[in-house]
Design a protein around this nucleic acid. Sequence first.
DNA 1: AACAATACGGACCGACAGTCCGCTTTGCAA
DNA 2: TTGCAAAGCGGACTGTCGGTCCGTATTGTT
Lengths: 197, 197
Amino acid sequence: MTERKPRKDAARNRAAVLAAADALFTDCESPDDVTMADVAAAAGVGKGTLFRAFGDRVGLVKALYEARLEPVGRAVETGPPPLGPGAEPQRRVTALLDALLCFKLDNRGLALALEATGHDSPYGAEHYERWHTLLRSVLEEVPGLADGEFAAHALLAAVRADLVEHLAGRRGVPRERMRAQLADYTARVLGPAPARP
Amino acid sequence: MTERKPRKDAARNRAAVLAAADALFTDCESPDDVTMADVAAAAGVGKGTLFRAFGDRVGLVKALYEARLEPVGRAVETGPPPLGPGAEPQRRVTALLDALLCFKLDNRGLALALEATGHDSPYGAEHYERWHTLLRSVLEEVPGLADGEFAAHALLAAVRADLVEHLAGRRGVPRERMRAQLADYTARVLGPAPARP
DNA sequence: AACAATACGGACCGACAGTCCGCTTTGCAA
DNA sequence: TTGCAAAGCGGACTGTCGGTCCGTATTGTT
């Protein structure tokens, strides 16, 4: 392995940068009026340090985003149903999308920053790939749903950060209403209401 | 009215810029490696001219996009069914989305440029508003579909430029397959296959 | 204590969107 | 046709931002 324990100051600075960036992205109007220099200053660190630790802007945002998303990822992979494995596929799909929606509602600035930051699109980020693969595999267990591939993309598109921001932020749609709307929509995609014996 | 006929050279240059920009956006890898200076040079025009004519980058891309989309808009508003008014709502929704998908397939570079160019998101662009309003109104005629508002957003999200680009460009999904997938998906959202008397 | 190895940080660079202003073209009017 | 504003032109210029570089400071190891 080529792992190396980072020096103490490096670790401290990395943490400071993450915290500062988190704060800045959380309460900014638009993600791109927080500059790298701002982040460095807020963290009490030089730009060089910041770039060495994260490579570039995308790297920083991704690191933050993934750190925040990790608990959700864990709940999905090893948590209890319906979010975790084991639930009936329809319920799980709904739960997955709801979790994603809530996450984006709770981390609007960050999610927006991720999608807006350089790297042409969310597609191609490995974390998108992960969610798509998972969602697709669950969708394919839903009876009568032929094309999980496309449906997974389309459903994920329904919770994209900028749409969420538009509805929740700009247009003031309340959280619970959005969740209900999404659940409703998801149910339609999943097919006619299953017979309840 | 405060309308003023533009001078001849102004009109000529405006056209030259539009043509040049169209060409550049059409065959570029990523929209943001065509710079304003590039466009000006390709059009044989100074940057000042370009900015006076279109205000800023967003203005240019919007002008281009709307010029290209206009025929589609016309077909939708006054053309024959199923794209134009008069068709059964389910058919029309499908036709609308298919038209949009085809448009984005045929104008990938441009559509990508529009979504990627500064202005935080597609939402808030007046042309999005137009499509959303229309789609919503048609959706609300579909029996059993309670929430046209959200469904319209979600369906439009399924044909977003960067998703189309990802599937058609990066992953090489052929045009007809994408259309079929979208039609399939749309049908699911619209509800169980209607009884055919 | 000495000395690599690692990290620090801010001056520096290149690129790009957008502005400015002296010069040219246009088209109206005498 | 000639005169003359007004409208338009274009490229040098500016401000900002992401990203790099390198002399200096900090670690931690022997």
